[in-house]
Write a protein that binds this DNA or RNA. Structure first.
Lengths: 239, 239
DNA sequence: CCCGCGCACTTACATATGTTAGAGTTGCCG
DNA sequence: CGGCAACTCTAACATATGTAAGTGCGCGGG
């Protein structure tokens, strides 16, 4: 059930059979959400952790003006609210962008892991550190890159993250998000998102239609994005 | 030596005497950096963790264009490169913005804590989760707030964080950063930073001179910032 | 004491991005 | 199969933000 999670954690370091078992036994229940439903709401005090099995979700925050900023895109294998285990109160909500299936673990089970399985605990901690590194990369892109470079960077990142969980087909991948949702990721208007998208298309860097993205010139795309995947900690080494 | 760190961690949950001792014994060595020196550089593979005792530092990334984005402001009590313990390679550098004093702990000592002191480990983990929550809040401010609101939000946050380590004087605090540095925080030009600053001044929300900020109307400042400190996890409860 | 340098601040103009409105497209459902 | 609804894409204009250039102030070193 938690295959994608294991696939992802296994990128960073060896996971023993016992550790695999611990995780599998923690994430027992399963649940489905339809698109546009909150999986966790801002301000909630969850008593469980949830990992995405299938579909796309987004961490987000609404402002009084009605504007929305998406602060993270979650793909299968991502833990949605591991921060809730220690932060107690969710600072932001997570919404299903497509139909989603999730697996659920009680905080008690996670707590038992932190009490008895230090190495697995470090891997879970690492997972949240990578989330933070992604946030930092987004901050850089948002604050100091040209918007076309920000989009290029986002495409490189998602392509790589989907690759880990074997959801890419070479340079092509499925990204079932609307332009309005992607505009909320980049922090720009839908109109401007479309302008920026045309720019990447016109430069022959990508094609994008029917929610399928194809990278046509990976080298130049990475170059405009100044993409360096170090922040994803994909090196396999003892942790 | 690590008083500020203990003060900060102690906001979230009770710390036992043994845990205090463990931390004190981990952070043995001390070191000083002058302003504008890197404390850790991007791409480094540190074998130690460092916590700020005194001064202000910033996590940052440089782009090929020469632009800089600051992704975090570090104040005394913050751990500078706890992520390096598990990520191994630093995704971004940390620079001393003023003269800084730091305390240093070997990764081995931190590793021993994670192997033997689960509760203290959770508190350290929590600290990195709060870093991530701050990043998310900055993403929202950067992407979707008016720039004056972004600055207002930053002031509210820093005031609160300095309050925890007892570096505020009521509604006044010392913030020895130049406008160029603050512009790199907000992701705007120096000129525009100055415009935005004038705006907050003119609205009577703050005064700001000689690197001293005074909040004149806390209520309206929070209101324009839509500031809600939930994301800092300042609630005292078992973790 | 004065000079020079860094920093805060300003102006004028250029560019990027947002807003509003609407036309074309696609896909789903009755 | 027709029609609604959501989405993509474009245009025209308004606003926010960046760039280049320069003034003035305050502080530390000679």
């Amino acid at each position: 059930m938690v295959d994608a999670l294991l696939l992802k954690l296994g990128q960073h370091d060896r996971i023993s059979d016992e550790e695999r078992e611990l995780l599998k036994r923690a994430f027992t229940r399963e649940r489905a959400y339809s698109a546009d439903r909150d999986i966790v709401s801002a301000g909630a005090r969850p008593s469980v952790c949830t990992t995405l099995l299938d579909g796309f979700a987004a961490r987000y925050k609404m402002l009084a003006s009605g504007k929305r900023q998406i602060t993270a895109i979650l793909v299968p294998g991502d833990i949605i609210d591991l921060n809730g285990f220690l932060c107690k109160t969710m600072d932001q909500g997570v919404v299903a962008l497509t139909a989603c299936r999730v697996a659920i673990a009680d905080h008690d089970s996670i707590g038992r892991i932190t009490d008895t399985a230090p190495h697995l605990t470090r891997l879970l901690w690492l997972d949240t550190l990578i989330d933070a590194a992604i946030h930092r990369e987004w901050l850089v892109a948002m604050g100091r890159r040209r918007k076309s470079a920000q989009l290029a960077h986002f495409i490189c990142e998602i392509h790589m993250r989907l690759g880990i969980i074997e959801q890419t087909d070479g340079h092509r991948f499925h990204l079932p998000l609307s332009q309005a949702e992607l505009a909320d990721v980049l922090g720009i208007s839908v109109v401007h998102f479309n302008r920026v998208l045309q720019e990447l298309r016109q430069q022959g860097l990508i094609t994008w239609s029917n929610h399928t993205v194809e990278i046509r010139d990976a080298h130049r795309l990475r170059q405009t994005a100044e993409f360096d995947p170090t922040y994803l900690s994909l090196q396999f080494e003892p942790r």
